[in-house]
Design a protein around this nucleic acid. Structure first.
Lengths: 108, 108
DNA sequence: CCGACCCATCAACGTTTCTTGATTCGAGGA
DNA sequence: TCCTCGAATCAAGAAACGTTGATGGGTCGG
């Protein structure tokens, strides 16, 4: 929600920050296989419950994952739109297309 | 160099960490237009010289930029391989392809 | 040689982030 | 109802991060 009104560069920084931690990268990797509940992540990653909860919140607030309540379990899954936006950023800043334009040379 | 021997997930986390700061995202944006020296970045971004030096070092150590000395100037440019690797990561973890496999269900 | 210039590095400081353990909350089962 | 279980939240501490100002090291022009 808050991300909607942020300038593009701050939004991008937020996305990348969400993936800047090894634990969160692992979570994303696991979720790429499908939905997982916290206890599954806990078993596989060997991490404390409250630690995972912290990282899942970061991922959720940045829009990378969504949660679904089912009884006393909460299942997390990846939001592919966020991944697409990251790929789009990488493609947009990839040099080649508009190289040479926007020159602001101060040094010869 | 150090990144070469790191496990894949730690490497990915490093890449994303490098882009987790708005200033660094701006730098990458500028460099996507071509080579820039520090003084140009300084003028456009309105940042202190030592601040830029710090961020450029982070980008350089993570493999996103390379530097080229030319007299007393140092020109920075983007390394497109790093951007490609990021895009590859986003594509690899994108759910759909291998969804359903690797199930480790602990909850019904 | 001397000064000006571009850039990297350093120490110091405040801020943010991450981890840990304890507590709390809600949903079920006995 | 009471107890258990999955998960979120909180407080406290350690560690990493980013900014600032000062210093140092090359490189060029005079």
């Amino acid at each position: 929600m808050t991300t909607a009104t942020l300038p593009a560069t701050a939004r991008a920084a937020r996305w990348f920050h969400a993936l800047s931690d090894p634990t969160r990268v692992e979570i994303v990797r696991m979720l790429s296989h499908g939905e997982r509940c916290v206890c599954e992540l806990q078993n596989v990653l060997g991490a404390q419950q409250s630690r995972l909860s912290f990282h899942l919140r970061v991922l959720k607030e940045s829009g990378f994952v969504t949660d679904r309540k089912d009884g006393r379990w909460v299942h997390y899954s990846l939001n592919r739109d966020a991944l697409d936006e990251i790929a789009a950023f990488a493609a947009a800043v990839r040099p080649g297309k508009h190289a040479g334009s926007c020159a602001t040379a101060c040094c010869p």
